[in-house]
């Protein structure tokens, strides 16, 4: 019975550690999708001169994790600005993403291209940072969860 209880405690704390580590993977994944969105928008807006709402909605359909955010942004364009849902980015990263979205569609193709190129550089840097953090912390949190579970078991025993 005690062994079973200890196993449960360790499993729970390990899972908590795993959940925390997942946020690092998710953040890296979202930043990767933002980069794909930027590359796509460069073509759609600057070359094909497509309209912003249509380009964003279509990109949202393909980039699953950003679909809610892009959908809400487009709805805000048409019916007054509303708070956008954070897909799982740090506050500063999310603020920069919102700024980028708000800057689009307000200037000619050349300037839009410049804005997107700058954003691409910035989000590439953020993604590299996120990758470094994920390597550093993701495995650590799983181990930490497991160790915390063992510690609790030892204290209880």
């Amino acid at each position: 019975m005690i062994v079973l209880l200890c196993a449960c405690i360790v499993a729970c704390t390990t899972y908590c550690g795993y959940a925390v580590s997942r946020t690092y993977f998710r953040r890296e994944e979202i930043l990767g999708e933002i980069l794909r969105l930027i590359v796509r928008l460069k073509d759609d807006l600057c070359f094909f001169r497509e309209r912003l709402p249509a380009a964003l909605l279509r990109a949202g359909e393909e980039l699953g994790t950003l679909s809610d955010l892009l959908g809400a942004f487009v709805a805000g364009l048409e019916g007054g600005e509303k708070p956008l849902p954070n897909p799982g980015l740090k506050e500063e990263e999310f603020r920069r993403l919102c700024e980028l979205l708000r800057a689009l569609g307000k200037s000619d193709a050349g300037r839009t291209g410049e804005i997107l190129a700058r954003a691409e550089e910035e989000f590439s840097r953020l993604r590299q940072e996120a990758e470094r953090e994920r390597r550093k912390f993701a495995a650590m949190y799983v181990k930490l969860g497991f160790t915390a579970g063992l510690l609790i078991c030892i204290v209880l025993l």
Binding site: L45, C46, R49, E50, R51, L52, P53, L77, G105, K106, S107, D108, A109, T112
Partner: peptide, 13 residues
């Protein structure tokens, strides 16, 4: 102006 160009100045430049 922005609504008239569908929030896409680049498409109407």
């Amino acid at each position: 102006f922005l609504r008239a160009c569908d929030h896409s100045v680049h498409a109407y430049e």
